[in-house]
Amino acid sequence: MRQIRDNSLSIAFGLLLLITLAAQSIVGLADYNSSARTDGLAEIDWWRYITSSSFAVDVAENWQSEYLQFTLYILLTVWLVQRGSSESKPPGEGGLESDREQRMGAFAEPESPAPVRAGGWWSGIYSASLTTVMAGIFLLSWAAQGVAGRVAFNEGRLRDQLDPLSLGGYLTSPDFWVRTLQNWQSELLAVGSMAIFAVFLRQRGSPESKEVGAPHSETPPP
């Protein structure tokens, strides 16, 4: 029971993800088949839909933008600050910080992760592993959006008796970029507004918020 409670955040979000993904597949299928009926095309079953490029591109385009958002946030908050925001380091503390502050190099502890105790290259790679993995998922999802988006887009072009686009042609097409940019702008808005809202607004009990009585100008240390 304690194990579950100690990991409740990751478990809850994982379950919500699975429920939402399942729901997306069900209503997505209904939407797809409704369009198919209107266009006089054959309806498809659930398995055919979740293995279709149409479902794949919808999933990938949202994934890539979320991972871009977190990658940018993790990286930019190393150097950039927002005075008074619980999402920021205090002004003047921007940068990679010293080995002492980061408990690495000569300041590694017996309980530090193995790559940190190993030092050298391992420690260097490990010190950017969160950004590396998040950026990697962003790039892979974005590439997946391109690959699946092209197939889904070409399906429509073939129906309209137009030539299919090559991958290069699709990656420079308005369809690819409108799917990309409509997601990027919403993520950037959410992150930017969160950074500044957290200066003046509070949620009692949340580590994402300052203490309710904390002054607006106070930037809490991480």
């Binding site: 194990q3 579950i4 100690d6 990991n7 990751s10 478990i11 994982g14 293995t51 279709s52 490029s53 794949a56 999933v59 990938a60 994934w63 993995v133 998922i137 892979l140 999802s141 590439a143 997946a144 690959v147 699946a148 092209r150 197939v151 070409n154």
Partner: peptide, 30 residues
């Protein structure tokens, strides 16, 4: 930490498997 490690691997595996499936779907032009 056992459950935490399992969740870490689980999330990574889900992401990798779904992305791999999407690339396969794209390659098969479904």
């Amino acid at each position: 930490m056992r459950l935490a490690r399992a969740l870490f691997i689980g999330y990574l595996a889900l992401i990798v498997l779904v992305l791999a499936a999407i690339f396969v779907i794209g390659a098969l032009a479904r």
